[in-house]
């Protein structure tokens, strides 16, 4: 097989991995264990693919994408590293060593990409405004699919086609301040997204619950599920006070009775 054909094949494995999280609700078919095995079969060395996949999988097991945080991209790292390991005949440990810098580079690309394609949302807003409903949903299902696939296909294709040295060179050339800056910009964008949500939900007198949620997590170390459970319980309590006037009034009356003698004592 010539090197262009091989690069195209591996690029398509990357597209398959990307579409797992885009169109299949992240069934985890994107994981290195699966993709490395496929790469191994395609490059004619399934045993080496399995071995690299198992090693990289163990290392990336802890990296879970939660909420908006983007971890090093072990999906891309695993595919490219396994290919290099098989093509150069190196062992699975070398594959891991190659996978890490590529994963960091992939993370940088992913953060940049996910920042830029916020533009699709603005185009969809404009399309809805004009009444072009199909156009609006196409920005999601057609353009989203195409752009995300391209975002994965091109770098994987180029990496396999141009080789290891070239990839290492790029990893070394991107200045650290730029990488760190993009990571911080991604945090600010998350803050912006949450503030949009807040402005939608926060009606008069409700801001206190936002602060309660924040301080509950900040001081007590609860996670979002934990604070939501407390939120549900608090909602039940406050609803019974606010809306079931009869029982709440009785309870209040009972308290008043208890307090009366105390007040008499003080007088």
């Amino acid at each position: 097989m010539n090197s262009i054909g091989m690069a195209v094949l591996i690029g398509l494995v990357a597209v398959f991995a990307m579409l797992d999280s885009r169109l299949l609700g992240r069934l985890n078919f994107e994981q290195p264990l699966v993709t490395s095995a496929i790469v191994g079969i395609l490059l004619g060395n399934p045993a080496a693919g399995l071995a690299s996949g198992a090693t990289i999988e163990l290392m990336s097991m802890g990296l879970v994408q939660v909420g908006a945080a983007t971890p090093p991209d072990m999906v891309m790292g695993g595919i490219i590293a396994t290919s290099f390991a098989i093509l150069t005949g190196s062992d699975p440990e070398t594959a891991v060593a190659i996978a890490i810098p590529i994963a960091v580079l992939g993370q940088l690309l992913g953060v940049t990409f996910r920042t830029i394609i916020a533009a699709l949302g603005h185009r969809a807003d404009a399309a809805i405004e004009k009444g072009n409903f199909r156009e609006a949903t196409n920005y999601h299902i057609v353009w989203g699919t195409i752009l995300y696939s391209t975002m994965y296909f091109i770098p994987v294709f180029l990496a396999i086609y141009l080789g290891t040295d070239f990839v290492q060179g790029i990893v070394d050339a991107v200045p650290a301040w730029f990488t760190n800056g993009l990571n911080f910009a991604a945090k600010l964008l998350t803050a912006y997204g949450l503030s949009l949500l807040l402005s939608m939900m926060a009606s008069k007198g409700m801001m206190v619950f936002f602060l309660l949620g924040f301080f509950g997590c900040a001081y007590l170390g609860l996670d979002v599920t934990g604070i939501s459970i407390f939120g549900v319980l608090l909602a039940f309590i406050l609803m019974s006070v606010k809306y079931q006037g009869g029982s709440a009034a009785t309870a209040a009356a009972g308290i008043d009775d208890d307090y009366d003698p105390l007040e008499d004592d003080e007088l």
Binding site: V66, G67, A68, A69, F184, K187, L188, T190, A191, L194, L197, L198, M201, A202, S203, M206, M207, F209, F210, L211, L212, G213, F214, F215, G216, C217, A218, L222, D223, V224, G226, I227, S228, F230, G231, V232, L234, A235, F236, L238, M239, K242
Partner: peptide, 22 residues
């Protein structure tokens, strides 16, 4: 609406404290 407001806003507050990391 009132109950959802409470749960939703508390969850947003929780997300601010746990998801950003500045």
């Amino acid at each position: 609406m009132y109950a959802c407001g409470i749960v939703g806003l508390m969850a947003i507050g929780g997300m601010v404290a746990t998801l950003i990391g500045i």
